[in-house]
């Protein structure tokens, strides 16, 4: 900060000499460019939080209206698969935080491998999710009108409003899963750019912002896991 103030006076002549290639002309310094990008990302994350909060509101309203349905229907979700996915996402959040840590220390080789692990974790998450969805679709557990449970899920047909619970489940986890897929695309793109040598400890904005996005996806799952998977296994005879 102090350096910025000191150089402002002779900025035009002086700064152009040290103009780093990534610095765009409408910013005073790399610092300001980085901070602006980050604030913009936080504003975007707030819109994401509000998008998901609409679904959390639907969840809350239906759970307040039909608490027994939520407890009974939730018991048909496999908490072990949900728990596994929670650990996978937490680990990927850790590795993406480490990728930024290493970028700040100019260890871009490690940044690359941390991003590879993050991408792999996202892949594992989607594969587990595919198995969960597949098992439900095979036995007629669909969102909305098509809901017609058979086999293992047959008892759901006798639970009033079980269809609403599963519609909420599919929409919330589905839109979350879509965010995981988008994240995978972003990490793949970052891997190419890291390999190409685009980033260094002075300029790693893209990795920082992708990390923020990925942590938000993790936070949404931190709430989805107990609220969807764990409410049917507590005491009280369920």
């Amino acid at each position: 900060m102090a350096t910025t103030t000191a150089t402002t006076a002779d900025a035009p002549a002086h700064e152009h000499a040290h103009h780093p290639p990534h610095l765009q002309h409408h910013f005073v310094s790399s610092e300001q460019q980085f901070d602006s990008a980050k604030l913009g990302m936080w504003l975007f994350l707030i819109t994401e939080i509000l998008l998901f909060s609409g679904m959390f509101v639907a969840y809350t309203v239906y759970r307040v209206w039909h608490p027994e349905t939520f407890t009974a229907a939730s018991a048909f979700l496999d908490w072990r698969l949900g728990g596994l996915n929670t650990l996978v996402l937490l680990f990927s959040s850790y590795t993406v935080a480490l990728s930024i840590h290493y970028a700040q220390k100019d260890r871009l080789d490690r940044t690359f491998w941390m991003l590879v692990i993050t991408l792999a974790c996202a892949g594992v998450f989607m594969i587990v999710k595919a198995f969960e969805y597949g098992g439900k679709f095979a036995e007629g557990v669909f969102p909305g009108e098509a809901f017609d449970p058979v086999g293992h899920y047959a008892p759901l047909a006798d639970i009033p409003y079980a269809r609403q619970f599963f519609s909420i489940y599919f929409v919330m986890t589905g839109i979350h899963g879509f965010h995981v897929l988008v994240g995978m695309g972003i990490f793949l793109w970052l891997l190419f750019r890291v390999r190409r040598g685009d980033f260094n400890s002075e300029y790693y904005t893209h990795i920082e912002l992708a990390g923020l996005y990925w942590h938000l996806v993790d936070i949404i799952w931190i709430f989805l896991f107990p609220l969807l998977y764990l409410i049917g296994h507590g005491g009280g005879g369920h």
Binding site: T86, S93, L230, G234, G235, G236
Partner: peptide
Amino acid sequence: LVALTILTVITARLDFG
């Protein structure tokens, strides 16, 4: 975070009467 995940699974499965 891992410890708290395990804690949330345990507390959800306990019967508090």
